[in-house]
Simulated scan of single mutants.
Amino acid sequence: MKRLIKDIIWAWRFKRAVRKAKKLSKLFGLKYYVISMNGSIKVVPKKNICELVRSHRFRKGVTVADIEKLALFVTR
């Protein structure tokens, strides 16, 4: 029963994040990713991901394409 409730909450948060990503993408014309970070779902623009990769915030060898493959949802 606990697992079911957790899954329902996660699905609700995911749907909400997807709606937010689509809305922001349409508004600003950027590509947005819905990714899972530290157990929570985040909506992040591709521009910020590129800056973080350039500033070596991720492990050595991680590229934007790797992050895009692991993203739960990608706009456009």
Rank of each mutant, 00 (worst) to 15 (best):
R57M: 13
L30C: 10
L72N: 04
R19K: 09
T75S: 08
I49Y: 00
L72T: 03
A65N: 15
K42H: 11
V43G: 01
K31H: 08
K42W: 11
A11D: 12
K42P: 01
V43M: 05
W10L: 11
D66G: 02
H56T: 08
L52E: 14
V34R: 00
A11Q: 14
A71L: 04
I8D: 12
H56R: 13
R59V: 06
E51Y: 10
K22Y: 02
K26T: 06
K2H: 12
R3H: 08
A71W: 02
K46Q: 11
S55H: 04
S40V: 12
K23S: 12
K31D: 10
T63V: 02
T75A: 04
Y33A: 05
Y33H: 10
G29R: 13
K23G: 04
R3T: 12
S25M: 04
D66N: 07
S40N: 15
K46W: 11
L72M: 09
F14G: 02
K46D: 14
R57V: 10
K2T: 14
I67T: 04
I41Q: 05
L24S: 05
W12Y: 15
R59T: 06
A11L: 13
D7F: 10
I9Y: 15
F58S: 02
I35P: 00
I5N: 10
K22M: 08
G39L: 09
R13A: 13
F58K: 02
K15I: 07
A65I: 09
R13T: 08
L52H: 10
L70I: 07
I5V: 13
A11N: 11
T75D: 03
Y32L: 06
K46C: 10
I8L: 15
S25C: 06
A71Q: 02
S36Q: 08
